[in-house]
Amino acid sequence: MIPMIYTVFYIGVALHLVTAATALAYAATSRDARLLRLSGHLLLGALVAHACVFVLRYVAWNVVPLAGVADSFNLFIFLVSLTSYAVTRSQKRQALLTFYTPVLAALCLIAVIVTARSLGESPRALPIVLVTIHVGLAFLAYALFFVASLTGGAYAFAARQLKRLNTVGFAQKLPSLENMDRTLYLLIAFGYPVFVVTLVLGVAWAWYDTGSLTSSWWWSPKIIWSVVMVALYAFSFHARSLGLLRGPKLAHLICIGFGFMLSVYLVLELLHLLTYNFYQEAP
């Protein structure tokens, strides 16, 4: 089973690389829309490959593979691919693949370098269903926010090109500003409640596990980081809903905000300040 897991994983990575190359070829020439359609089909293939890795690891060890660096990465790439695919299903938004797929390819390369070795090892089991749902939803929210930030980047780029009178070439092939603004809003509108539910489940599990929530728990880096993240997206979501923030400013906030949150997350992760011991060894 392990060789099969690796084979499928590398097929997925290869598909992601080809997907990105195809989308970039379109961005460079902005000519043949068939390149974009091909890129969309390849992304679907990559998506299936990542789903297969997930299923194969579950079948091999009978453990839902959500925890641990390799599985987290695989899950994250799968969910970002799924979100990207869902967003670009509409022909009008297909050109966004040129923003999504290169980043996905980069994530895959990082996955190969950092996590590929662990794919042959047993996944870390999560103790209860509550935690499994908590982790799954958390990654879904991260994926939605990640794709939202990429869409924000595309919006900022297109708006800048329009202000600069650059109306030929690639910029013209992107979806309309209104379309990207709506996509961005919908991604946050889905991601924000998912993230809130994730936090509630996390708190519920912590309370269930320890019997009480101490002040040191509330002030732990992970909780502070999560609250800041909720605040960022709560502000973005409500400001956009009320019409207080829209267009380039919202795009920049989402884009830079996510970048900042991701950087802080990575630093905390490197300092081992985010790890909870809710793993249990697989049977």
Partner: peptide, 13 residues
């Protein structure tokens, strides 16, 4: 036609 192109670049519908 430039006006139409600009409108299409900004508005969805």
């Amino acid at each position: 036609s430039i006006a139409v192109d600009l409108a299409v670049s900004i508005f969805m519908n």
